[in-house]
Design a binder for these strands. Structure first.
Lengths: 338, 338
DNA sequence: GTTGGCACTCCCTGCCGAAGAGTGCCAGGA
DNA sequence: TCCTGGCACTCTTCGGCAGGGAGTGCCAAC
């Protein structure tokens, strides 16, 4: 078990390294932190921390750098989440309040997050699978062509063109529209299929084909569009850690272009609190030198989507976690208000 | 006036430099290109080209590199647009054919373009200002709350929530919906305002407030959303020219995050053909060492939006122009089919 | 107008030595 | 048992310097 002071030394190393971006030595450490012991003592502690795998030396006779394991300990036991200042909170609120629609909310969120954390921000669109149906609309585009519009409680809108097997009259259309809405309004997506299964039966035989087509398109939309969309921003922040540049940044940019990878990254976030994945804890190869800080957000108690940031393992964890948590909270409020 | 052979030398320099990414000398040039003259002669030609400002030396006793002016001459007079191979064309067609809706079309296009050109791709969503109204839908969400849905001929859907000054009955709603559609269906956006100006007058006094609110929201949407959205992709391709890395790539990434800058870039593209902006021809500071190849695309004869790629001035212009043109053409077809 | 020859310039690489930062270990003291 | 000062050692970094290579510019000859 590590003594209290050794933990303190680790904390100091992490803080200094995050600040200076350079390996930190024993002398500098005693000068900048009020450790009450001499550099020699710190050296002993550092040797112990190194034996345990919490820190490492880039080369003999260089200072120490935290390992992934060291950051993990730091995040779990040595650091809290730094709350944002009142000014920052006001800025978030003001910025998000200006949004006009869902796209705008997500767009603003990603910019805000990138700016606050000075890192790459990733925001997932509110997932359809956990949202509820607010309204289904059917429009006639041509005698045998309809447009299906699906509106969710999070403000998301999906539309599909439906080619009907036979012409479908306006009155039947209004009828179908009304019945559909009365059945599935307010329902969650997974609950929809059984509720509409018998709808074709209540129509005239010659209309059943069209009704079935409409329904299967609707169900397809519900399933397909559970495929989750993402927005990312702030990639230019990657250039801030410019040292081992091309080698580090390339795979990260590539990983960020793959939705699948990102979704899995965010997917690991739990509903309840801020999740941090450090370095090699990220399975994807290109991201082993980055950390991901993510959290769920939603209009109510339950998370409907996730958001987070991706940055170097050498990041300001307390500040980043604070910013991510705060942004998620405000976005949730905004969604709830609409 | 430059002699035929000097133009040939310039073309050879551009081609070699694009291929090798290194300054090209007289000897290598005579070896790799069938110039029929000796290195010494080429040196004379190079000196002349340098006097005219078409090429430059990074330093004394290095090879020559094309200047922006050199690339310009190359693009304008020395190179054509390289058509894509049949296999490439098939690949484009297949890839785009799989798209399910407008978002998907744009998403696929940006990925395709990035992959084909191995550069950063930018695709503008079909602009609302040149599209026509296909349908307007009004839904009642609550007694005094409506949702306005606007569907365009390019398949784009915009929605807005409207808070009404007074409750609005279902029959009035249907009435308003019908009148709106009969007036503006198929109209271009700029033509809409005069067509609906007198609509409130034909309603009962207590309903006029709501009708006006709906109309102003509609007009706002038409104007606001002429604010054009963009999708970009393939930023990891920026890492391919890894030499003067952090300095070059940083401002480019920053520029790419600013919609305004990108819109202006694409906006310079003419409707008719592929436009190329080389190096300093781009006004934005961060993009002076990049070239932009862009073109308009649309479902008919007229361009409804632009797309293009951003890459180093040292790029394969004929191939890039060919790819951009081909992709634009196929996207236009896809849009026309829907 | 073209060509071969030749001197010159400049970059790149590797090598060397000095300086600096940081460590590990040891012996002495509380 | 733990802390401390001292000291030798290691390793990186940086400037200076020489050698090799690539490419040019110019000149005289064809």
């Amino acid at each position: 078990m590590l003594s209290e002071r050794r933990l303190e030394v680790l904390r100091a190393i992490v803080q200094d390294y995050v600040g200076t971006e350079e390996p930190v030595g024993s002398k500098a450490l005693t000068e900048r932190h009020n450790l009450q012991v001499s550099p020699a003592t710190v050296r002993n502690d550092m040797a112990a921390l190194e034996d345990e795998g919490y820190i490492a030396q880039p080369h003999t006779s260089a200072g120490r750098v935290p390992t992934d394991k060291g950051y993990r300990l730091f995040v779990d036991r040595l650091a809290g989440v730094r709350p944002l200042s009142a000014a920052e909170r006001r800025a978030i609120q003001n910025f998000l309040d200006g949004a006009v629609d869902l796209d705008d909310v997500v767009g603003r969120t990603v910019r805000l997050l990138a700016q606050l954390t000075r890192q790459v921000a990733v925001v997932q669109y509110p997932s359809l699978s956990r949202s509820t149906v607010r309204h289904v609309e059917l429009l006639s585009l041509a005698p045998a062509r309809l447009m299906l519009v699906l509106i969710t409680d999070t403000g998301r809108v999906e539309q599909r063109v439906v080619d009907c097997p036979a012409p479908f009259g306006e009155t039947s259309l209004a009828d179908l529209r009304a019945r559909l809405n009365s059945r599935i309004d307010g329902q969650r997506f997974p609950e929809v299929p059984p509720l509409v299964a018998d709808l074709p039966d209540s129509f005239e035989p010659e209309e059943r084909g069209t009704v079935s087509t409409v329904l299967s398109t609707l169900l397809e939309t519900l399933v397909e569009e559970t495929e989750e969309r993402l927005l990312i921003g702030g990639t230019s922040n990657l250039t801030r850690f410019a040292q081992d540049f091309p080698l580090t940044i390339r795979p990260v940019l590539e990983a960020l272009e793959e939705q699948v990878v990102l979704l899995r990254l965010l997917g690991e976030a739990t509903d309840t609190g801020v999740t941090v994945r450090i370095g090699h804890e990220n399975v994807h190869e290109g991201l082993t030198s980055t950390s991901v800080v993510s959290v769920g957000y939603g209009s109510g108690d339950e998370a409907v989507a996730k958001l987070g940031v991706v940055g170097p393992t050498r990041m300001d964890y307390p500040g980043t976690m604070g910013a991510v948590r705060a942004v998620a909270r405000y976005v949730g409020q905004i969604l709830a208000e609409n």
